[in-house]
Structures are given as structure tokens and as C-alpha cells.
Design a protein around this nucleic acid. Structure first.
Length: 818
RNA sequence: GGGCAUUUAGCUCAGUUGGUUAGAGCGUUCGAUUCACAUUCGAAAGGUCACUGGUUCGAAUCCAGUAAUGCCCACCA
């Protein structure tokens, strides 16, 4: 036997060698010139914001398995890869690593630091993906901070601007005081925080008082009106009257049915800006705006010296103190309530009027909903999440960020006229701070213009991945072949961002859906209900790092684990599942070792037996392979890689190893005991050759290393393809008349039942498996006995009985006579 | 408050269009085995399929309702 198979188990170091081999042989290469049907994948660019965790491995592997499967279907798979290495998440990583805030540096200095640090992470990430055996075509690698991608992103922005879909609006904006930037609705999360519900005394002109409840007394200086419900009997008579705040400001009492009669005291103060309702009221009722929170989240221009410069929390305490002293505080009740916070830093979001760029998505909601119908969602219920988010949108998409490291907004403004100045298309990518517009407006010099100082939301770039992958607008051939993409794989937490924004961009730029399928994976939880934290490495509470797990169990074992879950469902990390993968690898190894060991005197180019001449046990194996191929195909059709894995395991472990190999052992090893044994041995060898190959092909997408490793060391010398991954996936039942096989199936089922009975007797009567017996008596109705007779050689071989006797009886039974 | 999902063996989960006795892996117990198996194989024990009603000859599966859990969203004076 080939010395490779003398190993006790599949050598793990073989994985790296195979990865190199695949790259050399271009197994993963997309062929732009091939006439084969294209299958394109819009791979998620992982955010460079820290170390990767097994959650990444989990969702990427599921798409990877599909890519390999599609390739074995003969499709021309386009599987690119990129890194999202700009934007706020990356800035935060860099700030953390260097221990300084971005605003302590010049823009250039900070950008240099970012480039330097992310470069290291990109290398590390790529190494990890390679070590997992991810079959991407690295020739198409991109990074979102690269010049090509910056150009694509800026060109997209300018095109939207010209269409009128990107607009600069001076209006209240969701603002993160910690990060000092505008944020989009999608970046706001709910967080339960402790607070107090304060009831404060306001005074009417007649001296009577009205109580108003609020959680944000620090906004009292910004109170511009007081609202009551028009039908509220308690306050009906006050509508239109003036009321004075404890700080001495006098405002109108206005009726609006958005007020809840039962909430608080039924009277609401409207401040600029406590929440979105305030925004609405100020706009609808043409109320003045009093802005008292600055960009840094501190109070400013409040008219009260003690609180100017203080944070909201501090200002709140000061105001409450003042109200206590003046006797205007009726009571304070501690409460817990959900507050909108920035998803990146957990800081409560404020609403501040600052001019921002927006993409007008509100008015295209119907189209965004209609596009969802053109996409197949896997699992289907994930579409609901998308639809719900889109129909509940309240804000246009704010795309400008007051940050440093990202794609600059490529415009200048005229100081003279205020008009927007565009760069020339040929200038892109452009940094408006460092460059001047090629087409300077008439009578303007460099001193007359000012650069937009903002960068684009990182999603404004990553939502262009279908276009970026398709050649950044510079390769029409590629674009035509791969766009729209066949598949978008991603996790469910970014449906409202990445999926939505990609649909938005493709709608605006290409008037089409970006992909035909979206496959949505779940999350990995450290334990029930507990998210994986990036900081939990080895020794912590969470699972070990992907690198450690791969080193410990092999890439194939980790991949096996990643494919265990139902699509879209969160799973709790269970190291035992990786161990199961490891066991399967060993089992595959040993089955191959046994099979190949029994094929030593078999030359597939000469000794193959035609299927119609094979022994029935062997014919059955080939039949099963076709059935399993159909099962696998139908699960892949639904993108359920998990159930495909299950189908394979059932077939391989039970049918192939426990049953088939045991049934043919004697025929392979001692053909002399059987009449016409040599020919029957050839039949088994043919089935074994074909059967093992199919086994390897079935598992190849999941465990590409061990399967191709075995192929390389045995099959390659007989087969035309240089790698298992270039072979065609096994054929299903198509074109085969299944009815012809009814008697074969019936006989085999009886044979398997018979095996079970023999094993049970051996267990209960404590007869060793190696013990030979004199006679095996099989009882049963004629139909069953007749169906078993074609299998007599293998029955004899399996049972180690010298004689087999078929005895008519009512029930199917067996006896071992020693 | 709305949407979605989940609830099946001690644990983790499968169960396709309703069809005999509800499955797998892990764990437990017992047995065999070094002749492919860092063992592996076999057997056994273990379930009121969350609950209540309905449709049906027949329901884990379909329908209605209830409960618990999780996720997403809204509300947040």
C-alpha cells in the first residue's frame, strides 16, 4: 500500500500542503473566458476591528461549502474576498491600540497609523482564511480603503448627488457625542438604562401650577412649548394659554393628539431636541429652536452658567438641585427605560441640528420592498425582518460622518456663493483637503473654496460590494458576467444595514436587485443568550480563538462544526461538535485505508466490472450513492448545508462503513471460499473504487483537505482531474428507472434487517463476532427468503456460517446453530 | 405594544408534502473487538413531541388559542 496510508490518521500538516496545491493549480480560480455558467458570490468583507472569532468562521464556512459544491456542479464560481478596513470600527481599533484618540493627531498622521495597523490585521485575517481552506480567488482581493474602492465609492456618491438622491440637509440629526459624528438610524441600538422620572411644576399666568413629568430636566432651558391632548378634560381650557417654566421662560400650551393622556401627568414639554417627537412638533408648529447641547454632548448656550460646559448627566443633577431648592420639583421616581445608544460605543444618542448628507431612502421604500420579492431569502422568514425594518424606517440614510479615516466626501463648497463644487471624474479618488478641483469655478481661487471635512459612512462603501467585486466599474466584461450576483451570504444582525444598503445602491445605480439569493446565518453564542465577545480568548469564559481551534483539531474539523446548525439559527458553541468532526475525519481516513488496501491488486483502467454484471450488494451501493446525491442536491438547493452534512453522515457511517464494508469483507479477502469468487471480488473492488470516490466527493465541500488528500494519494493516478475539487459531483437518479431497483432495495432491506438480527443474537447469546458457526437458519415468508437468495455469498461471509438454510415461516427470524 | 423564531430523550438537535412502533449524536448501562478504526461495532434504558381545543379514519406535523424562551423593532413626556 502507498506509504501515505500507513499513517494512523490523516496527517494534519497535509492541510497546508493541499492549500498551496489548490492555489498553484488554480482550483479556486474564476475563469472569465469560460463559457460555463457563472455562480458569483458577494462575500462579506470582514470589518477590521479586532481579532476574528469563531463567529466569523461559522458564517463564512457555510458560504464556502456552497462555493465548493457549486464548483463541483461544473459552475464557474466567482468567489472574491475583501476587507472592510476603514470607518469608525477601524478607527476605534486603532485608537485602542495606540492609546490615543484620533483628534490628537492630524488627519494625515492618524490615517498613516490606521493604514499601518490595519495592514497587519489584514495579513493575519487572510492567513486565517487560508488556513481554514476558504476557496476564494485571491486575485480579486480588495480592501475598502484602497484607491480603486475609494474611487468607486466617491463616484457612487457623485452620481447619486447628480441624480438628486444624495442631498445635503440642514436639519436635526442623530448624533453620537462620544464619537463626535452623525449616525444612521440603523446604528442606534436600544439599551436599558436607569433614570428618574421627575415631575416639575410649571406656572400659568393666573398663578396656578401645572405639573409636567420628564426624564430629561436638563433640557428645561430648551423648552419651546408645552403640549396636551386636545380631548383631555383636565387641560382643555388651557390650550392656547401661556405657561412659564421654573427657569422663567414663557411658552405656549399647544394641543396635539400625539400626547398620551395617561402618560406622566398628561402634559409634555417640547424641547429642542429631546426626541423625534420634539422634532416633529417643532417643525409642524413652527416653533423656535433652542440648541443647548453641543457636538461634544456638553451643554452650551443654555442661559444657565452653572450647566454650560457640563455633560448632560451632570447638568441634569444641577438642574434637579436647583428645582429642589426652588420647590419646583414635585417628585422623582427612579425608573429603568430603554434609551437609543450608538451601537459602537453605547453612548446615548442626541438629536442635534447639523447639516449632513443623506441618501433619500424614505421615498423609495416601495421599491426596496418590491426588490425583496426578486430575491430568494434563505431561510425565507428572514425576509420578514427586512420588510419590517424598511416599512418602519423613519430617517433617510445619513451618510456623512465627522470622522477621519474613511472615504472623504468628494466635494468643496464656495465661500462666496455656497455652491457645491465637484471634482472631475478623472480626479477620483480625491482628498478634497489635499487637492483642488480640476474645474475651479469662475472667479474662485484656492482661498475661496472650502473642502467638505466629512467622510462617508463605511456602509456607503461596503454596500457597493457587488459593484466593487464586479471590477469597480472598470471591467465591463466582468460586470456583465458576475452581476447581479448569485449569492449574498451574511449574518442576520446586518440585514438592516448591509443587506438593505446594498439593495439601495443597486436600485439607484443599476435599477436591479443586487443578487438572486441571500443566505443568512445565525450567531455563535458563548453560552445560552450570551453573545461571543471578541475579548474572550483562551483562558477566558469564551471559546478559544479560531487559530487555536484549527491547530488543535484541524481546519476540516472546525469546518464540520460550522456546518452543523440550521441556516439562520444561533448556536451555542460546543467544542464537542468539533471533536465529532475530528472523529469523522478519522473514520474517513480508516474507511479509505481499508478500501484502498483492498484495491491493491485492482487496476481501474482494466478490471472494472460493468454495473449490470455486479453482485447485488455492490449494485445497491451504487444505487444508494445516486439516492444520496439527490438528497444532497436538494438540501444544497435550499442552502441548508447543515442537513446535507447530516445526510452524508448517515450514508457514510451506516450504509457505507457499518453495512457495506462489513458485507463485502469476506468476498474481498477470501474469495477462494466462494464459488466464482475472483469475479465476485472484482465486482466488490469496482464498487469500492467508485463508492469511496463518491464518499470523498460528497464530503469534499465540507472537508476539502482529508477528502482531496486521499484523492491525491490514490485516485489521481487513475483519474483525469488533478484534484477532487475539479471532479464532477456524483450523479443522482436522473435518467435512471428507479422501479428496476425495487427488488434490489427490498432484498437489501431484508439483508440489513438480517444483519441486525444476527448482531442482536450475538450480543444476547454472547457469541464473539469472530466465531464461526455451523449453520445459519433464516426463517420467513417465501417473498423475503427469495429476496435474500441473491445475497447468499455475502450473508455467508458476514455471518461466518458454513451453511445457510432458508426455512419457510410466518415471521422473519434467524437462528445461529453452532 | 408589533413582527419573527423556538419549545421533541438527561444534554444538543433532526423530523421533507399528516400515515405503522417518533429518530440521531453526546451522556448512561451492558457486551464484543486489537484481522480499516488515537478504538470501533452492537445492544439496552430513556419521550404525554410545551399546554388546550379543533379538522381527520389517522396529528410532533394542519388550524385556532394559551404559556414560556430568544431575536428584531417600536415606545421611551
Amino acid at each position: 500500500m502507498h506509504e501515505f496510508f500507513e499513517n494512523k490518521h490523516f496527517p494534519q500538516e497535509e492541510e497546508g500542503r493541499l492549500q498551496d496545491l489548490w492555489e498553484q493549480n488554480g482550483i479556486n480560480a474564476f475563469d472569465l473566458d469560460s463559457p460555463a455558467q457563472v455562480y458569483s458570490i458577494d462575500t462579506p468583507p470582514p470589518t477590521v476591528s479586532g481579532n476574528m472569532h469563531i463567529g466569523h468562521i461559522f458564517s463564512y464556512t457555510q458560504a464556502e461549502v456552497l462555493a465548493r459544491y457549486k464548483r463541483m456542479q461544473g459552475l464557474n464560481v466567482f468567489y472574491p474576498f475583501g476587507f472592510d478596513d476603514n470607518g469608525l470600527p477601524t478607527e476605534r481599533l486603532v485608537e485602542k491600540q495606540i492609546g490615543h484618540k484620533a483628534n490628537e493627531f492630524t488627519r494625515e498622521e492618524f490615517t498613516d497609523k490606521c493604514l499601518e495597523i490595519t495592514e497587519g490585521y489584514r495579513r493575519k485575517f487572510k492567513e486565517l482564511w487560508r488556513s481554514l481552506g476558504l476557496s476564494v480567488d485571491w486575485r480579486y482581493e480588495y480592501s475598502t480603503i484602497s484607491p480603486e474602492v475609494r474611487r468607486t465609492s466617491q463616484a457612487s456618491f457623485l452620481s447619486l448627488l447628480k441624480q438628486g438622491n444624495a442631498v445635503r440637509v440642514d436639519s436635526p440629526t442623530l448624533w453620537c457625542p462620544e464619537c463626535g459624528t452623525a449616525v444612521a438610524q440603523a446604528e442606534v441600538d436600544d439599551k436599558e438604562l436607569s433614570s428618574s422620572f421627575h415631575t416639575i411644576k410649571f406656572t400659568l399666568e393666573d398663578g396656578c401650577s401645572v405639573n409636567i413629568a420628564t426624564t430629561r430636566p436638563e433640557l428645561l432651558p430648551a423648552c419651546v412649548a408645552v403640549f396636551v391632548h386636545p380631548e383631555d378634560e383636565r387641560y382643555k381650557n388651557l390650550i392656547g394659554k401661556n405657561i412659564t417654566t421654573p427657569l422663567g421662560d414663557t411658552v405656549k400650551i399647544i394641543a396635539d393628539d400625539a400626547v398620551s393622556i395617561n402618560k406622566g401627568t398628561g402634559v409634555v414639554m417640547c424641547c429642542s431636541y429631546g426626541d423625534e417627537q420634539d422634532m416633529k412638533w417643532i417643525k409642524e408648529h413652527h416653533l423656535p429652536e433652542k440648541v443647548i447641547i453641543g457636538k461634544d454632548g456638553r451643554m452650551v448656550d443654555s442661559g444657565i452658567d452653572e450647566i454650560n460646559g457640563a455633560s448632560c448627566n451632570k447638568a441634569r443633577a444641577i438642574i434637579i438641585d436647583k428645582l429642589k431648592t426652588s420647590g419646583d420639583l414635585i417628585d422623582s421616581i427612579p425608573i429603568k427605560h430603554d434609551v437609543g445608544v450608538h451601537e459602537r460605543c453605547g453612548t446615548p444618542i442626541e438629536i442635534i441640528p447639523i447639516a449632513q448628507w443623506f441618501i433619500k431612502i424614505m421615498e423609495m421604500r416601495d421599491k426596496l420592498i418590491a426588490r425583496a420579492d426578486e430575491i430568494k431569502w434563505h431561510p425565507p422568514y428572514m425576509k420578514e425582518r427586512y420588510l419590517q425594518w424598511v416599512s418602519n424606517l423613519k430617517w433617510d440614510w445619513a451618510i456623512s460622518r465627522q470622522r477621519y479615516y474613511g472615504v472623504p466626501i468628494p466635494v468643496w463648497y464656495s465661500k462666496k456663493t455656497g455652491e457645491i463644487i465637484f471634482p472631475d471624474e478623472s480626479q477620483l479618488p480625491v482628498d478634497p483637503h489635499a487637492e483642488l478641483p480640476l474645474n475651479m469655478p469662475a472667479e474662485h481661487t484656492a482661498d475661496d473654496i472650502i473642502a467638505d471635512s466629512d467622510v462617508l459612512d463605511t456602509w456607503a462603501t461596503s454596500s457597493l460590494t457587488p459593484q466593487i467585486n464586479a471590477g469597480c466599474g472598470q471591467n465591463a466584461d466582468l460586470h456583465n458576467r458576475v452581476y447581479p450576483m448569485d449569492l449574498r451570504p451574511q449574518a442576520h444582525d446586518i440585514i438592516r444595514t448591509w443587506a438593505l444598503y446594498t439593495i439601495v445602491m443597486s436600485e439607484l445605480h443599476e435599477q436591479s436587485a443586487p443578487w438572486s439569493n441571500i443566505m443568512i446565518s445565525g450567531h455563535v453564542l458563548a453560552r445560552k443568550g450570551e453573545k461571543l465577545s471578541k475579548s474572550k480568548g483562551a483562558g477566558g469564559k469564551g471559546p478559544e480563538s479560531p487559530e487555536e481551534l484549527i491547530a488543535k483539531y484541524s481546519a476540516d474539523a472546525v469546518r464540520y462544526w460550522a456546518c452543523g446548525a440550521s441556516l439562520g439559527k444561533d448556536v451555542v458553541f460546543d467544542e464537542n461538535e468539533i471533536l465529532k468532526g475530528k472523529k469523522l475525519i478519522t473514520k474517513l481516513w480508516n474507511a479509505a485505508k481499508f478500501s484502498i488496501g483492498n484495491l491493491e491488486d485492482f487496476d481501474p483502467t482494466k478490471d472494472m466490472v460493468a454495473e449490470s454484471d455486479m453482485e447485488p450488494t455492490d449494485q445497491w451501493l451504487l444505487l444508494r450513492i445516486r439516492e444520496v446525491a439527490d438528497l444532497m442536491n436538494s438540501t444544497f438547493e435550499k442552502y441548508e448545508v447543515g442537513s446535507g452534512r447530516q445526510e452524508f453522515e448517515n450514508f457514510f457511517w451506516k450504509d457505507f462503513c457499518d453495512n457495506y464494508l462489513e458485507m463485502v469483507k469476506t468476498r474481498l479477502r477470501s474469495p477462494e471460499l466462494i464459488e466464482g469468487g475472483e469475479k465476485k471480488k472484482r465486482s466488490a473492488q469496482t464498487a469500492l473504487y467508485l463508492g469511496l470516490k463518491a464518499v470523498l466527493q460528497f464530503i469534499a465541500p465540507y472537508m476539502p483537505h482529508v477528502s482531496d488528500g486521499i484523492y491525491q494519494h490514490y485516485y489521481k493516478k487513475y483519474e483525469p482531474e488533478s484534484s477532487l475539487h475539479k471532479t464532477k459531483y456524483p450523479q443522482g437518479m436522473e435518467g435512471v428507472d428507479g422501479s428496476e431497483h425495487e427488488s434490489l432495495r427490498f432484498g437489501m432491506n431484508n439483508f440489513i434487517t438480517l444483519i441486525g438480527n444476527i448482531r442482536r443474537i450475538r450480543t444476547t447469546e454472547r457469541i464473539a463476532f469472530s466465531t464461526e458457526s455451523e449453520t445459519l437458519e433464516i426463517y420467513g415468508p417465501t417473498k423475503i427468503l427469495e429476496s435474500l437468495k441473491p445475497f447468499i455469498d455475502d450473508i455467508k461471509g458476514f455471518s461466518k456460517a458454513k451453511n445457510i438454510q432458508f426455512i419457510e415461516g410466518e415471521s422473519f427470524d434467524v437462528k445461529i446453530i453452532q
